[in-house]
């Protein structure tokens, strides 16, 4: 081993810290830059964006694209749909997941191991997309909201996370004491367990709600009428499909094409806003949520 004087060692440490901080800062920039660019582009003159003159901050600030989006009935209608699907879907998720997680968290439930196996097996083997599609079709759910909220009513991973939380974070003695006082299991769940489970419920709301908000594929295969389209499906048409045709028209349509381009940035922002606004409030909890899940993965 190389001999080092304390001074040398201090200098080495400082250099190491500097390198670490520079790399970390670099990563932050790489993650943030695209997000900042989207925001800036949405406020800028679309012609400048297309010419590559908007680099970090907005140029020639204009709200035209926002005005246009706010007047677009289809976007707001689908926004409403998405809110409805997210609220109803998340409520069903919470109800179903809790109803399954609580009994399975009870160490005194006969048959618990078998039931857990019955449930975890589905994480490793599934019928796949085609049989699921045929099933939903046969149940008459196609082109209704139910196709979006019922087939995914329980996320098995979330169920395991919640069960682990009940097992590890709520003292068993409390439950026993409540029982001796003559408390039924339903009452125990609603009056003792749930009030003690706010952190895990916050995590579940975040996971499930973000899932509903962001999902497009189920709507793509199950929803036929445009009236029922969720936001992501409308966005798919605006962001991804219109791409090809907007390239062709370069003459008289130029302005419209330009506006269509900046509308894309606006749509991205208004669709991501609710999730990003929610984020700081639940941020503290979800690290815990991920950890609980991995504890007993």
């Amino acid at each position: 081993m190389r001999e080092q004087t304390p001074g040398q060692r201090n200098a080495d440490e400082k250099i190491f810290d500097a390198v670490v901080n520079i790399w970390a800062a670099l990563i932050v920039v790489v993650v943030l830059y695209p997000l900042i660019f989207i925001v800036s582009a949405s406020f800028s003159d679309p012609a400048l964006v297309l010419n590559g003159e908007v680099i970090l901050l907005p140029k020639h600030i204009t709200l035209d694209a926002y005005k246009n989006v706010f007047q677009n009935g289809q976007i707001w209608h689908s926004y409403g749909n998405t809110i409805l699907y997210t609220v109803v879907g998340t409520l069903i998720n919470l109800l179903m997941t809790t109803l399954a997680a609580y009994p399975l968290s009870r160490p005194d439930l006969p048959g618990r191991k078998g039931l857990m196996f019955f449930i975890t097996l589905t994480m490793f083997f599934s019928g796949g997309i085609i049989p699921s599609y045929l099933l939903v079709k046969q149940l008459g759910m196609v082109d209704t909201m139910w196709a979006l909220v019922i087939p995914g009513a329980i996320g098995t991973y979330n169920l395991i996370v919640m069960r682990t939380y009940f097992q590890t974070s709520i003292p068993w003695e409390i439950q026993e004491a409540a029982h001796i006082d003559g408390c039924s299991n339903w009452k125990l769940l609603s009056h003792v367990i749930l009030p003690l489970s706010k952190p895990i419920m916050a995590v579940m709301v975040l996971f499930y709600a973000v899932g509903h908000w962001n999902s497009f594929f189920n709507a793509l295969i199950y929803i036929r009428s445009k009236d029922l389209y969720p936001l992501q499906l409308v966005m798919r048409e605006m962001l991804l499909i219109s791409q090809a045709d907007s390239f062709d028209s370069s003459t008289g349509m130029a302005n419209k094409v330009l506006l269509a381009e900046s509308i894309k940035y606006v749509v991205i922002i208004i669709s991501s806003l609710p999730v990003l606004v929610m984020y700081p409030f639940v941020q503290k909890h979800f690290v815990k949520g991920v950890m609980i899940g991995s504890l007993k993965g």
Binding site: A100, P103, F118, S126, S132, A153, N185, W186
Partner: peptide, 26 residues
């Protein structure tokens, strides 16, 4: 503990239909 099984009833039926149903459909 019948009431615990009662809680589990709907989730288990759901698993049967939406997970084991497609396996049967395979």
């Amino acid at each position: 503990r019948y009431d615990l099984y009662l809680m589990l009833l709907v989730p288990i039926v759901w698993y049967l239909v939406f997970h084991y149903g497609p396996m049967y459909g395979l």
